[in-house]
Lab assay of single mutants.
Amino acid sequence: KTVKFDGLQFDFDNPEKALKFALEVAKQKGAEVHIHGDEIKIE
């Protein structure tokens, strides 16, 4: 899975870790997590 935000991109082999990371970043930024297939966007 790939996590994208602020023009940055982070690749994870483990989908659970990717989602956990995305949710943590979103919480800190006050943003929402959007999942599109293998891509997780924080907006």
Rank of each mutant, 00 (worst) to 15 (best):
Q9R: 10
P15M: 14
L23Y: 13
Q9K: 11
V3I: 04
K4L: 13
A26L: 03
K41V: 15
L8D: 04
I40R: 00
D6A: 08
V3W: 00
L23E: 10
E43R: 10
G7C: 14
F12K: 01
K1R: 11
K4Y: 14
K29M: 14
E43K: 10
I40E: 01
A26S: 02
A18C: 06
A26Y: 02
A18P: 00
E16Y: 09
Q28R: 11
F10Q: 03
T2K: 06
L23G: 03
Q28A: 12
L19D: 05
K17S: 14
F21Y: 07
K20H: 10
H34G: 05
F5P: 03
E43Y: 14
K20I: 11
K41Q: 11
F12M: 01
G30N: 10
E16D: 11
A18R: 00
F12W: 03
L19S: 01
A26M: 01
I35Q: 06
G37M: 07
E24T: 05
E43Q: 11
L23N: 08
H36N: 12
F21S: 03
T2R: 06
G37W: 07
F5I: 08
E16L: 09
A22R: 00
I40F: 07
F21T: 04
E24R: 03
G30Q: 08
F21W: 12
V3E: 03
E16T: 07
P15W: 15
K17C: 12
A26D: 04
K29S: 12
N14T: 13
Q28K: 12
E39W: 10
H34D: 05
K4E: 06
A22L: 05
N14W: 03
K1C: 15
F21I: 03
K29V: 14
F5Q: 04
A31I: 07
I40T: 03
K4H: 12
Q9H: 08
K17I: 13
L19M: 12
G7W: 05
D11Q: 13
G37S: 05
G30F: 05
K20M: 12
E32Q: 14
L19T: 01
V33G: 01
F10L: 06
D11A: 10
F5S: 01
E24D: 09
D6V: 01
K29W: 15
K29N: 12
K27S: 12
K20S: 10
E39F: 12
E24S: 07
K20R: 09
E32G: 08
K4N: 07
F12Q: 01
K27F: 11
A18V: 00
H34T: 11
A22M: 02
Q28T: 08
N14L: 06
D6S: 05
P15A: 13
E39L: 12
D11S: 12
E24V: 04
F10G: 02
G37C: 12
K4P: 00
G7V: 04
L23F: 11
H34R: 09
A26T: 00
V25Q: 06
P15F: 15
G30P: 03
L23V: 08
E39A: 06
I40K: 03
H36W: 11
A22Q: 02
G7N: 07
D38G: 10
K4Q: 07
G7F: 05
L19Q: 02
D11G: 06
E32L: 13
G30A: 06
K41S: 13
A31R: 06
H36S: 11
D11M: 12
V25F: 09
F12L: 02
K41P: 02
E43N: 09
N14D: 15
G30W: 06
K4A: 08
I35M: 10
D11E: 13
D38F: 08
K41M: 13
G30Y: 05
K1F: 15
L8R: 06
Q28Y: 10
G37H: 07
E32T: 14
A22D: 04
I35S: 05
E16N: 06
H36E: 12
N14V: 06
I35Y: 08
G7D: 06
H34E: 06
D13H: 06
K1Q: 10
I40V: 03
A22C: 07
K41I: 15
V25Y: 09
L23T: 08
F12T: 02
D11Y: 15
I35G: 01
D38Y: 08
K20Q: 13
N14S: 13
F12P: 02
Q28H: 10
V3S: 01
A31Q: 09
I35L: 08
L8M: 12
E39K: 04
K20W: 10
V3N: 01
F21K: 00
E32S: 14
E39C: 15
N14F: 05
A18E: 04
V33C: 13
A26H: 01
L19I: 09
A26F: 02
K27N: 09
A18T: 00
A31G: 13
L23M: 12
V25M: 10
V3P: 03
G37T: 05
N14K: 04
D11I: 14
K4I: 14
A18Q: 01
E43T: 13
K4F: 14
D38S: 11
F21H: 06
K17R: 10
I42D: 04
E39R: 01
V33E: 02
L19G: 00
F21A: 05
A31H: 09
E32W: 14
K41E: 11
A22H: 00
Q28N: 09
F21D: 07
Q28D: 10
H34A: 09
D38R: 05
L23S: 06
F5R: 00
D11L: 13
A18I: 00
E16P: 00
K27A: 13
A26R: 00
E16I: 10
V25N: 01
E16S: 08
K17Y: 11
F12D: 03
K29C: 15
A26E: 04
H34L: 11
E16G: 06
A18Y: 01
T2A: 04
V3R: 00
Q28L: 13
K17H: 13
F10Y: 11
E16W: 11
E32K: 13
Q28W: 13
E24G: 01
V25R: 00
I40C: 09
D6H: 07
F5W: 09
V3G: 03
D11P: 08
G37R: 06
T2D: 04
L23R: 05
F12Y: 03
E43L: 13
K29A: 12
K1S: 13
L23D: 05
V33Q: 03
V25W: 09
F21V: 04
A26K: 00
E24C: 15
G30C: 14
F10V: 06
D13Y: 04
K27D: 07
H34F: 13
F10T: 03
D13C: 11
V3Y: 01
G30R: 05
A22W: 04
Q9N: 07
E39Q: 09
H36L: 12
K20F: 08
L8I: 08
V33N: 00
G37V: 06
K1L: 14
K41T: 15
K29T: 14
F5V: 10
E24H: 06
F21Q: 04
Q9W: 09
I35P: 02
I40S: 02
F21M: 02
E24W: 13
E32V: 15
H34K: 11
E43V: 14
D38M: 09
I42A: 03
F10P: 01
F12I: 03
K20A: 14
E43C: 15
D38C: 14
G30H: 09
I40L: 06
N14I: 06
K29P: 06
A26I: 01
K1I: 15
G37N: 07
D6K: 04
K29R: 10
L8S: 05
Q28V: 09
T2I: 12
K27M: 12
Q9T: 14
Q9M: 09
K4D: 04
D38L: 09
A31P: 03
D13K: 07
K41G: 05
P15S: 11
P15N: 08
K27T: 11
D6E: 10
L19V: 01
V3K: 00
D6L: 07
A22V: 00
A22P: 01
K41W: 15
A26N: 01
G37F: 09
T2L: 07
K27L: 12
K17T: 14
A22I: 03
P15C: 14
P15G: 10
V33P: 03
H34M: 10
H36I: 13
I42E: 02
F5G: 03
I40G: 02
G30S: 03
E24I: 06
D6M: 10
I42M: 03
H34Y: 12
K17V: 13
E32H: 14
L23I: 12
H34V: 13
D13S: 08
H36V: 13
L23H: 09
Q9E: 11
K17M: 14
A26V: 01
V33D: 02
V33L: 10
E32C: 15
D13T: 09
H36Y: 14
K20G: 07
K17G: 10
A18L: 01
K20Y: 09
K17Q: 14
T2F: 08
I40Y: 10
K29Q: 12
G37E: 08
N14E: 11
P15K: 06
A31W: 15
T2E: 04
K17F: 11
F5N: 01
G7A: 04
D13W: 05
I42Y: 02
K4M: 12
F10M: 05
H34S: 11
L8F: 10
K1E: 03
E39H: 10
